[in-house]
Design a binder for these strands. Structure first.
Lengths: 187, 187
DNA sequence: CGGCGAAGTCAACACTTGTTGGCAAACGCT
DNA sequence: AGCGTTTGCCAACAAGTGTTGACTTCGCCG
C-alpha cells in the first residue's frame, strides 16, 4: 500500500502512543510499534530520527486545564478531579507519560515540566500571590497522580469499581483543601 | 575470593534490590546486578533460578504496619503517613515495587496483594464492619502512593523540599478523612 | 515516454539481553 | 593425601534491540 507522508507519520505516532501507554518507554520497541502501524521499522527511524525523538513526539500533549478564576471557589477541587478523570480516560497521553516517567529520566523531566508550565499557572492564578503556591499545587498533583496510579495502572479493585461521582465526592474535597484550605484543618 | 553460599546470596539480593529500586524491572539487568555484587552473572542464575524469581525475592517485604486499634482515633491518618514516610526512606523495598509495578504485571500483582493482605486487615480492624472498607483503604493508598510518586520518583520540587512535619500536617488529614470521615465533608 | 524524488522494503550491523554448560580452584571430609 | 562437593569463572548460545544503508517501486512532472 502507498500512503502519503503525513498519513504514515500520523499512523506511526498513533501506534507509538498506544505502545508507550501500555508498555512504557523501555518495553515498547520500535519493531512492535512499526508492526502495529503495518510498516517497516526503518520508516519509523526515517520519520522520527530515533526512539527518544519518537517518544518526545508521542508524549507531547496539553492538559487543557480550564481557567479556575471563573469557577465557584468552593468547587475547584471537584472540577479539577473531573477534568483529570476526563483527561485520563479521553486519550492515552497521560498514560504514556506516567508509565514512562517512573523509569525514564527524560519522561520524568517532561512530567515536571508539565506540572510547572501547565498546572502551576492555573493554580497560581486561582491562589493569587502566596508563598506556598508550589506546595499546594504539588500536593494536589500528588493526589491526582496517586488516584490515576491506583485506578488505571495498579488497578486496585475498589478504586476501579468506584463511579466517577463517587471519586469526585471523595477526592474532590481533598484537592479543594490542598488548594484553598489550611494544613491542619477541614475543607 | 571465596565466600559462603549465604553470604553471596545476600550480596546478590542487596545488589538486586538496589538496581530494581533505581531502574525498575526491565532496565535492571542480571549483568549489572552481578557486577554490583562483584560476581559472575551465572552465579545469580544458580542462586535464584531466573530473573523473575530474583525479583520475587527482592520484592518480598513487610509493611510493618502498626495496629491502629490502640491509637487515638483522630490521629490515625497522621500516624499512617509518618509510618509510610519511614518505610519509604528506611529501605528500598517499596521503591523496588513501585518502580516495577508500573510496567511489570507481576510486580503490579504483588502490589495489589500487599494492599489486600497487609493494609486492608489493619484498616478493617480500625473501621469495623462496613461495606466501604475497601474503598476507604484504597483511597488512603492512592494518596500515600501519589505522595511517594511525587516526592521520591518524579521529584516534584515543592514536595521534595517539604519537611516531614509539613507533609504530615498536609497529608495526614486527607488519610484521616478517607478512613474516618464522610465523602463530601470535612475531617 | 523518461527520469527523478519520494515512499517503502530487505538484509544486515553491532550490541545487549537472559540463560546454559563446561571447567578450574578451594574447601571439608576421611 | 585423596576424595567429592561446593563455589566460582569463562565462553558461548539464541533471541531481541536500535539503527543503518542499499535496493525496489510507485507517482508525478516535463
Amino acid at each position: 500500500m502507498r500512503r502519503s507522508s503525513e498519513q504514515t507519520k500520523a499512523t506511526i505516532l498513533a501506534a507509538a502512543r498506544e505502545r508507550f501507554a501500555v508498555d512504557g518507554y523501555e518495553r515498547a520497541t520500535i519493531r512492535s510499534i512499526a508492526a502495529d502501524a503495518a510498516i517497516d521499522p526503518s520508516m519509523v527511524m526515517r520519520y522520527f530520527g530515533n526512539k527518544e525523538k519518537l517518544f518526545a513526539a508521542a508524549a507531547e500533549f496539553d492538559l487543557q486545564l480550564p481557567r479556575l478564576a471563573g469557577l465557584d471557589r468552593d468547587d475547584v477541587g471537584a472540577r479539577l478531579v473531573e477534568h483529570f478523570l476526563d483527561r485520563w480516560e479521553g486519550d492515552e497521553a497521560l498514560m504514556v507519560l506516567l508509565r514512562s516517567a517512573v523509569t525514564n529520566a527524560e519522561a520524568a523531566h517532561r512530567m515536571r515540566a508539565i506540572f510547572a508550565e501547565q498546572l502551576r499557572p492555573v493554580t497560581d492564578e486561582f491562589l493569587g500571590e502566596r508563598d506556598d503556591g508550589g506546595q499546594r499545587a504539588a500536593l494536589a498533583a500528588s493526589q491526582i497522580l496517586g488516584l490515576a496510579l491506583a485506578r488505571y495502572v495498579l488497578r486496585f479493585d475498589p478504586v476501579v469499581a468506584m463511579s466517577r461521582a463517587e471519586l469526585v465526592a471523595w477526592v474532590g474535597p481533598t484537592v479543594q483543601r490542598y488548594l484553598a484550605g489550611r494544613p491542619e484543618a477541614s475543607v
